[in-house]
Amino acid sequence: MATSTFAAVSTALSAGRRLVTAVPYFWLAVFFAVPFAIVFKISFSYMVPAQPGYAPLFEWLEESRRLVATFNLANYQVLLQDSLYLNTFLYSLKVAAISTVLCLLLGYPMAYAIARSAPTTRNLFLMLIILPFWTSFLLRVYAWIGLLKTNGVINNTLLSLGIIDQPLVLLYTDFAVYVGIVYSYLPFMILPLYSNLEKHDLTLLEAAADLGARPFKAFFKITLPLSMPGIVAGCLLVFIPAVGEFVIPSLLGRTDQLMIGTVLSAQFFGARNWPVASAVAIGLLLVLLLPILLFQRYQQRELEASRR
């Protein structure tokens, strides 16, 4: 009976198994996969002022008894030719990349410090890292407005200490967006790094020390290369959503340079140009396709590794 795993037995009872598989499959297919197909389709449509806002791609013409297809490539042309879109894409990638690096620079030492502290205090620190994540994301971003604005907490403190005599312009700058992203996504950086660093075999470092390596060198030769999977996972978890971030730049960011998420929703709600908004969404998806696939591979490998 060596082969009688759960899977083998359930193959025999495949009706029940099929039902269990079908329910989540159906849900995700209808509400996750099909929507992307629709966005793709509409990105080739012409905009029409009436509901639903876009012209059909295929139309059956009764008089001539023909099926007519009308593809509009202009939506993508706009994307490539209008410097506004190209600029916004590049700016979003830049902001996300810088924020991701800052997040790593702050998150790595924190994850390292937690992983190397006493096992009893580890859980407490982890909970303190995760706790803000459970409180409203929106309100945590809002908290930074109060800190950064002209008569905000930071400026008032610096002024009263006499360090500055003119309030600094902190809010509605690139800096504010970096701070907002690092602040909101820090737990997503720390957690994968921690779960990687915690598993390291510390005897490797002892061996390096015995052989005369300084702690600094041992870190760069052993710890850092070993933690690469954690670094990649953490960076992807911050970078991918940050590129399409909407709330943080609209509350803290510049008004003269928008991020792609803001432009997308402005096209959608403001200009009501659904076809162009769809083309922007598809463009963003294409830009992020590689990182998303990379993340999926990592996620898969993590699960395989945790299987006993």
Binding site: A33, L236, L237
Partner: peptide, 12 residues
Amino acid sequence: MTTAPLVMPEVI
């Protein structure tokens, strides 16, 4: 389909 929503930007 179960891992993609974890990182998919919300606007999309």
